[in-house]
């Protein structure tokens, strides 16, 4: 795949309210940089993430989607991220099965104290998706620029 130097991917990050959203806030508080093309959507828990949202993001032009939640065992709702983990594993495997680049989807557990991990994860994810280039396989053509 050709690497486009000027390409900046659109990344949607779903963050659970209790851990990862707070972790993202912390990376801001500590002034840890990550690319501006990462946009965060706050959800109460990682288990709120409906696969429909991920597909919708891709359909509307996202190049990568990442879900961040509390570490397994630390869920504010005790069990939410365990369900999310199964759902996402199966969904990602299915996307891969359909030939969609598996690197465009990711789950990362980020606690409220892991501001540095949040920034590092985002940097790394943006790098990965930038290398993959524009998401052509999933985008809704009506929205093509």
């Amino acid at each position: 795949m050709q690497v486009n130097e000027t390409f900046t991917p659109t990344i949607v990050a779903f963050c659970c309210n209790w851990c990862s959203y707070a972790g993202a806030d912390l990376s801001g508080t500590n002034r840890l940089n990550y690319p501006a093309n990462v946009k965060i959507i706050r959800i109460p828990c990682s288990c709120r993430l409906n696969p429909m949202f991920i597909l919708r993001a891709f359909q509307r032009g996202a190049d990568g989607v990442i879900l961040c939640g509390c570490h397994p065992g630390d869920c504010h709702y005790t069990t939410g991220n365990y369900y999310a983990r199964r759902r996402m594993t199966l969904l990602f495997s299915m996307l891969d099965f359909l030939g969609i680049e598996k690197e465009r989807t990711r789950v990362e557990w980020v606690s409220a104290a892991e501001g540095a991990k949040f920034a590092a994860t985002m940097n790394e994810f943006v790098d990965t998706v930038t290398k993959l280039g524009k998401n052509k396989r999933l985008e809704d053509l009506r929205c093509a620029k």
């Binding site: 659109t10 949607v12 109460p44 409906n50 949202f53 919708r56 993001a57 032009g61």
Partner: peptide, 16 residues
């Protein structure tokens, strides 16, 4: 407060 349509609307606004 975090309905399907609300989150989807946020997704659309971000990916526009």
């Amino acid at each position: 407060g975090f309905s399907n349509s609300q989150i989807m609307a946020e997704v659309d606004a971000i990916c526009k």
